[in-house]
Design a protein around this nucleic acid. Structure first.
Lengths: 199, 199
DNA sequence: ATAAAATGCTAACAATTGTTAGCGTGTTTT
DNA sequence: AAAACACGCTAACAATTGTTAGCATTTTAT
């Protein structure tokens, strides 16, 4: 009987979810079995159910935690006065990149594996993602109207930004990594300059 | 006994692979069962094995077909004389976008599901992807050296380009789509302007 | 027309899946 | 000390998985 070791301030459930996020990222939600997960946690599969109610619940927790995280950040940025559109975009972009660097496993999983949620969670997350993209797009459209940003299709720009960021996955997997801050600056520079209206 | 209907010039195996690509995209490789696939093909699961040898083989065929496709294109572009770095990047980018528009299912699957290959195919595809990215990066580095492109980290730029393109998935899923050509032009413009050295 | 090949079917297999029941032990609360 | 709880275990379940064997039927080649 080897108990699950908690980190300070964390429940055993948290430990399970963290390990699950790692496995879901590596092999995908469907290809990860509960016995797989149990082994990495250091316990028998059945014991997991003392802490979680189902495999699906794990994915739900991951997805909604991350979604809320991003949603509240964009609302915060949006509400900040005296910020140009470009500055707002930079803030959003940097937040995405930082999250992808610090909270890699869960952010990645929530981005790639949400399709395996089932209703009502599926519909819920889909609608959250939609409104997030729309908020992002309207920041861009605002910038176009003000002449800060060149006249492009805003949803396309959003799509580029969000997916570019998720490419940080291959940075994580690469052997010779540049520093995280350098990566961040490079990404922001390339992407923002792509939007900026040139004089 | 309902036979698999072939399209002209296509084998029954091709039909199976095409349907599989669609399902693999929608639900992922692991979450797609052979009985699932069989149903969409209009046949019993066991009958599929008259045309393919395993589920794994289907994924292999998809991944390597697409990988070869991209590999031979970049070689072609690379070998073209009298082309600036920017022009080469545009060519590569437009090819990716066109592939993602015309050959959506298979391109997307090969990009997202290659992790489920097993050795030796896994190692093979990993190395192909690596060399592809390196080739792409060296086009960019060439452009930096010639002063066409601003001094940025080339691997980061590659990562942005490739992942941005894969975002076309959400364009496919969206209700109100702009035209494919408009999407292409927008993407190329944003991404290339992000690289270009401003005067 | 006959033989050979292609292609479908049903039935079954061993393995793996997520999950539950029931029990024991250790820990906390009363 | 007793009662309640938390948390681990083994064993088992029904469902689903990829795949094979064996046979029937249709299509193609001789």
């Amino acid at each position: 009987m080897a108990k699950i070791k908690r980190n300070r301030n964390g429940t055993r459930k948290d430990v399970i979810i963290a390990k699950a996020a790692k496995l879901f990222r590596e092999k995908g939600f469907s290809a990860t079995s509960m016995r797989d997960l149990a082994e990495h946690v250091g316990v028998e599969a059945a014991s997991l159910y003392n802490h979680i109610s189902s495999k699906a619940e794990i994915l739900q927790e991951i997805c909604f935690k991350i979604a809320n995280n991003f949603m509240s950040h964009i609302e915060e940025v949006d509400a900040t006065p005296n910020k140009s559109a470009i500055e707002k975009i930079q803030a959003i972009l940097r937040f995405h990149i930082k999250q992808m660097l610090d909270n890699y496993e869960e952010v990645y999983v929530s981005d790639r594996e949400w399709k395996h949620l089932t209703d009502p969670y599926l519909s819920n997350i889909q609608s959250q993602r939609r409104t997030y993209r729309q908020r992002f797009a309207s920041v861009i459209e605002d910038g176009i109207r003000k002449g800060e940003i060149k006249p492009i299709d805003a949803p396309t720009a959003v799509l580029i930004m969000l997916h570019a960021v998720s490419g940080i996955e291959s940075w994580h997997r690469s052997k010779k990594k540049i520093a995280g801050e350098v990566l961040e600056d490079n990404m922001v520079q390339i992407l923002v300059d792509g939007l900026r209206k040139q004089a």
